[in-house]
Each structure stands twice: as C-alpha cells, then as structure tokens.
Write a protein that binds this DNA or RNA. Structure first.
Length: 212
DNA sequence: ATGTCGATTTAC
DNA sequence: TAAATCGACATC
C-alpha cells in the first residue's frame, strides 16, 4: 500500500475502470470506501462531506425485475446503459433522491444503490438510509449523470482493511417476483443490526456502546 | 388526459 | 399502519 510522507495511507480516487465491473461485485467492493461530496453553499463557501459506505445494493440489469432498467431503455434509465462511473440519481416517493453508481459494461444496465454510510469527517450526520444520505450530503437529481472521476462527487479507497460483509435480500422490492429474495444487499458487519424488519445500524463497534 | 405506484422516511 | 408527495410509466 502506497503511503504519503505523513504515514497516512494514500487516498486513491476510484477510477472508471474500477466501476466497470458487475454491479454485484462493485456493491461488495464499495463497502468500506469513502464517499466524498463537495457542494457550494449560498454564501459561496464550499462544503465537503466524507463518509464511509456501510450499506449498498446491486441492481444487475434488464433481467433484474427490481431494476428500473427492467422496463427497458427510457429517458430515466438511459444513464444505466452507458459507461460505468457515472451517477444515476432518481427522485422517488415525491420526496427523496436516491444515489446510484452506474457499473458494468456499456449496454449492461447495472448500478449500485448507496444505502448507508457513517461520517468520517467529524460530523454527526445521520446517513443511515438512502434518502437521508442524499439529503444530508446535498445530492439531488441535479447530480444525475455526474462523472464520478470528477471533483464534486467521487469515492476514494483509504486503504483500510476490507470489512466483514453481511449479505441479505434487497429492501423495498417485494414487487420484483423471484428477484425480491436475491441476496444483493451488502452491509459492513460492524454496522449490521436488525430491529424488527427495519434495518438499523449498530455503531457499537465504533463507539463502544449501543445507541438508544 | 388520467391513474397507479414507488430501490423511503416519519409520525401516530 | 399510514401519510406525505410527485414524477415516471402505462393506459385510454
């Protein structure tokens, strides 16, 4: 692992080549990586967020009945058919924006939904859910099509050890026939907890105690 | 032109 | 358990 003179591990921005793998693989690989978001506030100041990804889901193509691309190539899904390493951000439930990373080969409509993260920038943002994550990090439909090799929205590998990963079926896709049970959701085991049927995050591994 | 429904979150 | 809230998509 390359290191800076400071002794800190090098921060490597993920490349288009990195994203150009099957969504199922990318979803697992993105657990533990650092999502970086920079945006310009009204007063002109640049705000930066950094958060470790702890939950993802893979949407694996047109044959995946839970994938938006199962409805074919439309204005909305077009981005997923293109090259990997671009953001697919869509609006849902009249309220929330969902962040996905396009993956796989051109022509294969695959993407990875970013469902949860924990701040590593000293903030106390609640990023425990795909809608809450985008709202907190100011990611919206305006970011649809954003190039993840750019400077406003990208992911870095901080060289941390690969986390232990838990796989489960995806959330909220009960309509997807046989695809609803496919284990395409990936969670950092240190943050996995089930309270009833609602996914929650256990931060005890990081802070030494269970939240209320 | 109109109706259905959702890759969620929050409140009751 | 249900409301909020609106764009995408299917259908007429």
């Amino acid at each position: 692992m390359a290191r800076h003179k400071s002794g800190h591990p090098a921060l490597r921005k993920l490349t288009a080549e990195f994203y150009a793998r099957p969504a199922e693989k990318l979803a697992e690989e993105l657990i533990g990586k650092i999502l970086v978001r920079k945006w310009r506030a009204d007063d002109g100041k640049t705000v930066e967020h950094r958060a470790r990804i702890i939950e993802t889901e893979a949407y694996v193509g047109e044959h995946d009945l839970a994938c938006h691309a199962a409805k074919g190539r439309t204005a909305r899904t077009e981005i997923m058919f293109g090259p990997a390493g671009f953001a697919y951000v869509y609006f849902i439930y009249g309220m929330y924006d969902m962040l996905n990373i396009v993956s796989g080969k051109v022509g294969d409509a695959e993407a990875v939904l970013i469902r949860g993260a924990v701040p590593v920038d000293g903030s106390t943002l609640d990023l425990s859910g795909p809608g809450k994550l985008t709202r907190a990090m100011h990611i919206t439909r305006r970011d649809n099509g954003a190039d993840l090799t750019g400077d406003d929205l990208f992911i870095v590998d901080d060289g941390a050890a690969k986390p232990v990963i838990v796989r489960t079926p995806r959330i909220g896709v009960d309509y997807a026939k046989q695809w609803k049970d496919e284990p395409l959701r990936f969670i950092d085991a240190d943050f996995h907890r089930v309270r009833g049927s609602v996914p929650r995050f256990d931060i005890s591994a990081q802070f030494g105690k269970v939240p209320p």
